[in-house]
Design a binder for these strands. Structure first.
Lengths: 184, 184
DNA sequence: CCCATAGTCGAACGTAATGTTCGTTAACAC
DNA sequence: GTGTTAACGAACATTACGTTCGACTATGGG
């Protein structure tokens, strides 16, 4: 009969690998991060790595599993039923900084994202009011540019199925007036 | 005397490489996309590739250069001085679909982004009103989730320097009421 | 038109990472 | 204790990397 939980050694190996990956992901470029780096840092055998993960991407994905299950638990907990979605997510990130750092810093997302951000910020700044408080302004900027990048990416990858001016108008309206019907 | 513009052959080689990359970037995972793939598709010699680009990342970055210069031109043109930032950007993407596809689809941004999106959407859906028109709702969803991911990423990579509840409140306010002072 | 320049080609090469295999050793569950 | 199972580590073929070189050829200046 197989046991219900994983062998202790398996848990140990996986944990060592994921931890090593999480550290390395913030330290160096994801693209140049090799399996070799991971097993060196984790100090596990080469074959051990491949016994549990196909490649480094699989390790990254397993980080999402952690996040996902953790979030699900948090969401079902009674303390959060009244909280807004953002509250739950941000508090979860706060608690599991290590994983979130790995996921967000891993330039799997970073490179393109950063460049688009750099590219679009000066444009958006022309529209943003100058007289807000510094702290608020930074957050509004990030909010603004992220929403545009996201909408742009969605539009591009779904095949440009809307007229650009129409989409721009929708975006501007959402940005200026907020999402209709959303409770603050 | 060296000529002012690049040798025609250089332009040709670079164009072949960039075009091949752009095609491949939408076809297959960026992480598994090799220099070999690119030079096979572009049908240029191995040494030619390395004469112009350090690695595949350099090719990706050169896509941004195209975007950047194109945007700058568009922004300075008299026709767009009155347009909102989003208008300029989206119309530019509309015109250069090939490059934008490569940049956005390249899972350099995709993998992490897609997963976070999948993860967060169900949370946000609980807050979104059900009675809006389908088309509007899709856009609002993308707007909403992208803004949250962006703000989350910014918060994580800048070292969690704000209280999560405070950030969540700011986010919720921006999402519900819009960015203060932004003209629609 | 000719010539010097400069880019491409293709082969070759050392290096590094990949992904797999297998026999040995040690830890695990029961 | 005993049978099972994972980790180890060395070895291996394979693939991609990044560079070098000599032969060839398109290019653009004169």
């Amino acid at each position: 009969m197989t046991t219900l939980v994983e062998d202790r050694r398996v848990r140990r190996s996986k944990a060592l690998i994921v931890r090593a990956f999480a550290d390395l992901a913030v330290e160096k470029d994801y693209g140049r991060l090799t399996v070799q780096d991971i097993i060196d840092r984790a100090d596990v055998g080469r074959s051990t790595f491949y016994a549990h993960f196909r490649d480094k991407q699989a390790v990254l994905l397993s980080c999402f599993d952690e996040v996902e299950t953790g979030l699900a638990v948090l969401a079902d907990s009674p303390s959060s039923t009244n909280s807004a979605a953002a509250n739950v997510v941000l508090n979860h990130a706060w608690e599991y900084q290590r994983v979130y750092r790995a996921v967000c810093a891993s330039s799997a997302s970073g490179l393109v994202q950063r460049h688009l951000r750099q590219l679009l910020l000066p444009f958006l700044d022309r529209s943003l009011p100058q007289d807000t408080r510094p702290g608020e302004r930074v957050i509004a900027r990030e909010f603004y540019v992220s929403a545009l990048i996201g909408l742009l990416t969605w539009w591009v990858t779904t095949g440009f199925r809307i007229d650009p001016d129409e989409l721009a108008a929708d975006f501007q309206l959402l940005a200026a007036r907020g999402i209709p019907g959303l409770k603050a």
